[in-house]
């Protein structure tokens, strides 16, 4: 067993951060880790900024991650990566989906979507940039981007030994099992 690891998944309501973290947590539990998770439901889910937090190790206390304590941030969207960047450890890594989802203020031209975010982020932290939306789209459904990102994370954490495909099967509807399994495999190939 190792010391507690903290994974922060951030994105936009509807991107599937909760499914990805559920799969991750179930797999970790199966391989004997203590796991705690935190997520927020309700109002913020309506297209707002969302986050789920997963912590695992021999014994985990807090279900929430404090500023400066995340080993990995999985950002499902670029701007959300920046919003949560201070949660990352100094030597932490960010897995960054390169998609842009403009908030309403940008849609109606009241504000601009910030430019060169990938450059900005990779200047300050180790960044693994992935076009997960494109990978998922090539598999036939853009929605599977969350499981592509999960694959990247699993590979980065060196957790391939867990039977993830079984966990995926338990967590997605029958007709999406193949899609998500393929998405996961593609994610493993990214790094």
């Amino acid at each position: 067993m190792q010391e507690v690891k903290s994974i922060l998944m951030v994105g936009v309501g509807g991107q599937g951060t909760i499914l990805a973290s559920n799969v991750l947590a179930e797999g970790l539990l199966k391989s004997g880790y203590d796991v705690k998770m935190s997520e927020v439901h309700g109002m913020s889910q309506r297209g707002g900024s969302v986050n789920t937090q997963i912590r695992f190790g021999e014994k985990v206390y807090s279900p929430v991650i404090e500023v400066g304590a995340a080993d990995v941030i999985v950002a499902f969207e670029k701007m959300e990566a920046v919003r949560w960047l201070n949660y990352l450890k100094k030597d932490g890594v960010i897995i960054l989906n390169t998609v842009e989802i403009p908030p309403l203020s940008v849609l109606i031209s009241k504000e601009e979507y910030p430019k060169n975010l990938i450059e900005e982020i990779s200047k300050s932290v180790k960044t693994i940039a992935v076009d997960a939306d494109k990978i998922a789209e090539s598999l036939g459904n853009i929605k599977a981007q969350n499981i592509v990102l999960l694959g990247v994370l699993v590979k980065y954490l060196g957790l391939q030994g867990i039977d993830w495909e079984e966990v995926i099967k338990n967590n997605v509807p029958q007709k999406f099992v193949e899609l998500n399994t393929n998405a996961f495999r593609k994610g493993l190939e990214v790094i």
Binding site: N86, S124, V125
Partner: peptide, 15 residues
């Protein structure tokens, strides 16, 4: 805890 500070301001994303 030590942490990274970011200067880039990003627009809010309310629901």
């Amino acid at each position: 805890l030590e942490h990274i500070s970011v200067d880039t301001k990003v627009p809010g994303r309310p629901p």
